[in-house]
Design a protein around this nucleic acid. Sequence first.
DNA 1: AGCAAACTAAACCGATTGGTTGACAGACAT
DNA 2: ATGTCTGTCAACCAATCGGTTTAGTTTGCT
Lengths: 115, 115
Amino acid sequence: MVEFDSPQLNTLFQALADPTRRGMLASLALGEKSIGELAAPCDMSFAGASKHVKVLEDAGLLSRRKAGRSHICTLEAAPLAQAERWLRQWEQFWNQRLDRLEALIERGKEEKQNG
Amino acid sequence: MVEFDSPQLNTLFQALADPTRRGMLASLALGEKSIGELAAPCDMSFAGASKHVKVLEDAGLLSRRKAGRSHICTLEAAPLAQAERWLRQWEQFWNQRLDRLEALIERGKEEKQNG
DNA sequence: AGCAAACTAAACCGATTGGTTGACAGACAT
DNA sequence: ATGTCTGTCAACCAATCGGTTTAGTTTGCT
């Protein structure tokens, strides 16, 4: 059966459930960023944004290295890939449903034409 | 740019962040289930499990119909597909990283041979 | 040495979460 | 009619979350 009791997935999905953090990931996809650069567009205190960064780090979604007094963050995509793999388990299921829906629509058209 | 400020994704990932709820989804993938059937393996009060079902329902992940005194739940895969689509945005990014990693490993091998 | 910049840590706050129990409602059986 | 089964709702609780402010640390600048 499908594996669902995974602390990894807990923290991962939890981290992804916040728009501020998803925004940070999107920003990181364009290249490495310091905490300050990640925090700038966030419309909240610096410390607040820094906590979001920590959540992402704890979820394994970013790594950081120190460069002078700045902390440079890099997107770590592996956990995203894991989440995607988990979601893909349902692909067959929802394709079936879509096929059924399509068939239903098709049948509706025919009835309209014939009736 | 990537779209990240989506209330849909907030509730969706939030709903997926709990192992009890992921377990319910897995159970639902095998077929329709009553609330009682979903709650049975949950090791918590009936009302507690019922609240989890409601979270999944609010996230659009399941729909229910009443049959006598039972509520029958059906998995709704569309939101899962949406989440998967969102995650797939990073596919190119992490493939790049994997390629770079692979190149690094390859270079390591060569150096071992030549040095 | 002294000050500013880039962060983290800790204490605090209100709102939400995940769970409980107990009371209630609707549908079925006798 | 009474009781039972399935499920919701409301109240409550501790813990976590998302945010703040204040203080402290490390690094760089002059």
